[in-house]
């Protein structure tokens, strides 16, 4: 980015001078490394890009990670929020930079596994663009209805028919999990996508939609307070946080959908740099701060190395694709 303003300064005076000044003031930790050897990496701060606005769970997890990784890394870690286009903006930005280990991104599984089902994007971030470093977190989804809803169980969804279900957005696990469940039930249903967890929660609390898919942290307090009823969770096994809510699988609907987050760098990252980062992350995720964030947000650990991350992404992508195709669930049309 700095390069941009450097190359084109000779335009018109005041505006661009100001722009350049503002730039150099803000992006001190650029990624244009010039030949740092891998051996003494890192010699300057490492930048962690987050593809969301500040405040969401990805942001919280990354900030806790960044804070805890400074010691094992021996350098400061900077968190940079680059929201937009379900992570594509941050992904494109980081993965087109120099693979020197000074710029990494925390990416969501949904961008690669669910996104393609909703949108044909020839320009999407590809798995081949990344060097996978470490898995970080697993977040689970729960399908909820208002406490006073006549729908008491997953079976009741079938009886009720014509279900309007709130999702946290197009191409999210919230949409996919419910679409698959309702698809298996052959219930007529319409997805109503909202802009994230907060608005979805508001809508289902107010009875504006019949049901909604939320992450555990978003729904937990409301379920505890008796405002919402959990119908099913989409994890493999029942969750410690919601022991009374059955999994979709045990109800006979083989739907497991979760959201996973991982750290990735541009493709072509030298192995020694990757190992250094990966062992620093291993150490950082043991810190109390990081553990507290996970615990209070009902987020699980995802302890996976780079190869496992890649495998998980490929598998979930293929699995979701096959399932939606078999069930004839068209995520595009009804998202």
């Amino acid at each position: 980015m700095k390069i941009l303003s450097r190359n084109r300064t000779v335009r018109s005076a005041a505006l661009f001078a100001a722009a350049a000044l503002a730039l150099s003031a803000c992006s001190v930790q650029g990624g244009s490394g010039d030949g740092d050897g891998g051996g003494d990496y890192p010699t300057r701060p490492v930048e962690f890009s987050v593809p969301t606005e500040p405040g969401g769970s990805t942001d919280l997890v990354t900030r806790a990670l960044a804070k805890s990784i400074e010691e094992p890394l021996g350098q400061s870690a900077v968190v940079l929020n680059k929201p937009g286009a379900n992570g594509k903006i941050a992904g494109k930005d980081v993965f087109s930079s120099n693979p020197d280990g000074y710029r990494v991104a925390v990416m969501p599984q949904s961008l690669f596994a669910v996104g393609p089902l909703v949108l044909d994007d020839p320009d999407a971030v590809q798995l081949e663009d990344m060097t996978f470093i470490k898995g970080l977190a697993v977040e689970d989804y729960v399908m909820v209805v208002p406490a006073d809803s006549p729908i008491k169980s997953v079976e009741d969804l079938k009886k009720a028919g014509n279900i309007k279900y709130g999702t946290t957005g197009a191409g999210t696990g919230s949409q996919l999990s419910q679409a698959l469940l309702l698809g298996l039930q052959k219930v007529k249903a319409t997805a109503v996508p909202f802009d994230g967890g907060g608005p979805t929660l508001t809508a289902v609390l107010g009875g504006k939609v019949d049901a909604a898919g939320l992450q555990i942290a978003e729904a937990f307090e409301q379920i505890k307070a008796g405002e919402l009823r959990g119908l099913a969770v989409f994890s493999k096994e029942r969750l410690d946080a919601l022991p009374d809510v059955p999994t979709a699988t045990e109800l006979g609907y083989d739907v497991t959908v979760d959201q996973r987050r991982f750290v990735a760098a541009p493709a072509g990252l030298p192995d020694d740099v990757r190992d250094k980062l990966s062992s620093a992350i291993d150490e950082a995720v043991q810190s109390k701060e990081y553990s507290d964030v996970l615990e209070s947000s009902y987020i699980g650990r995802w302890d996976a190395d780079g190869a496992e991350v890649e495998k998980q992404l490929r598998e979930s992508r293929d699995q979701f694709k096959t399932m939606t195709e078999e069930l004839g669930v068209d995520m595009k049309g009804q998202s």
Binding site: L60, A217, F220, E221, Q222, K224, A225, E227, D292, V293, S296, S297
Partner: peptide, 9 residues
């Protein structure tokens, strides 16, 4: 949430 308090009803 970081403080261990989840706002709710």
């Amino acid at each position: 949430m970081l403080q261990g308090i989840t706002p709710g009803p």
